[in-house]
């Protein structure tokens, strides 16, 4: 079990020792290790997307009482690979009146913050690419960059549905960013640190979902809205906006938006696990395996919610965010502060 537990840290150690023997300078070794971490994260993202697209189709199938993909490979698992090949071979269409550079750049740029999120997440014991002391804050500021690329796509397409979709995305993401940040502050107040590794190690005995259940519910709802996933998928509401910001995109550029959504989904679930479900803590199994079990369980819940509830109306969305979630998260914050103070008085 120890071999499995330390599998990835041992690979890093082995690479480090090998480079030491070749008498490479210290800074170059650090760069190589960082490069290895980036390759690992990219591999993880691609693998996750392959699994998640298949899983989502299967979950929808289950909910709607139909089999889902079932022809290619075991339980239709290779369907995603076939679809990816099809998307890669499609023509890259740019509308004639589009704002060419904004249109072309939006799809790659939407992917950048999604990848950057993975740098600070502790995947297992001693498994974090960059141990940043403002890790949590970094995550939210990077996530807020997503709005820029959606604006670029919505504006660049020169299509009224795209622009409306882009505007809705931005309005929704800005509104739900506030409860998202406020809900997490309770955890930060208890731990007294913004470092994600510290937050994980503070949950050695008790998961924060037991201390901060309201915060987790707020986080879950606001994160669903940030991800633009159902029931908050208004930016691409087919019945009103054709496909929102994605209307003019086809082939691999469209697939990049899709891939970014799944990358963000995994990152959001990973952050939730880190903040509320004890991160990589768990008995018997290796730490990173626990982490991924928890992440996939949470993603499964996200999928169930998406395909169970109907889409919320746009004005209801704003009312719910500003008049219910934000006050609730503020109350939670005050109660947490009082609770910490009472605990301190009782304990000391």
């Amino acid at each position: 079990m120890d071999v499995l537990e330390n599998l990835f840290t041992n690979i890093a150690l082995y690479a480090r020792n090998l480079l030491m023997e070749w008498s490479v300078s210290y800074s170059v070794i650090e760069l190589v290790i960082l490069f290895l971490a980036i390759i690992g994260i990219l591999g993880l993202i691609v693998l996750d997307a392959l699994i998640l697209v298949w899983l989502e189709r299967k979950v929808v199938g289950f909910i709607q009482e139909r089999p889902g993909p079932n022809r290619l490979g075991p339980a239709g698992f290779f369907q995603t690979i076939a679809d990816t090949l099809k998307l890669l071979s499609k023509e890259d269409v740019v509308p004639r009146s589009a704002d060419r550079w904004l249109f072309l750049l939006a799809a790659p740029i939407v992917f950048v913050p999604a990848i950057m999120l993975y740098a600070v997440i502790p995947f297992g014991k001693d498994m974090v690419a960059v141990n940043l002391n403002v890790g949590l804050f970094y995550c939210f500021s990077i996530a807020s960059l997503g709005t820029v690329s959606f604006l670029m796509a919505g504006w660049g397409s020169r299509n009224k549905y795209s622009l409306l979709g882009g505007m809705r995305t931005v309005a929704q993401m800005i509104s739900y960013e506030i409860p998202l940040l406020l809900s997490v502050l309770g955890v930060v107040m208890i731990v007294g640190s913004l470092n994600l590794s510290d937050i994980v190690s503070a949950q050695r005995n008790v998961w924060f979902i037991l201390i901060q259940p309201v915060a987790f519910v707020i986080y879950f709802i606001a994160a669903t809205a940030e991800l633009n996933r159902g029931p908050f998928d208004l930016p691409e509401g087919e019945q009103e906006l054709v496909a929102g910001v994605y209307t003019e995109y086809s082939g691999m550029r469209w697939a990049l938006f899709f891939l970014a959504e799944y990358t963000n989904l995994v990152a959001t679930a990973a952050l939730a696990v880190t903040l509320f479900f004890g991160g990589w803590h768990g008995p018997w199994l290796p730490s990173w395996m626990w982490f991924f079990i928890k992440v996939y369980f949470l993603i499964f819940i996200f999928m169930l919610v998406k395909w169970t509830y109907p889409r919320i109306r746009v004005d209801h969305l704003m009312h719910f965010g500003w008049k219910f979630l934000i006050p609730l998260s503020l109350v939670n914050l005050v109660l947490t502060g009082v609770g910490i103070e009472i605990y301190r008085v009782m304990g000391g």
Binding site: F137, Y138, F140, S141, S144, T147, V148, E177
Partner: peptide
């Protein structure tokens, strides 16, 4: 991080 959150975002 604040620069990105406040200004860029």
């Amino acid at each position: 991080v604040v620069q990105i959150l406040i200004y860029v975002g």
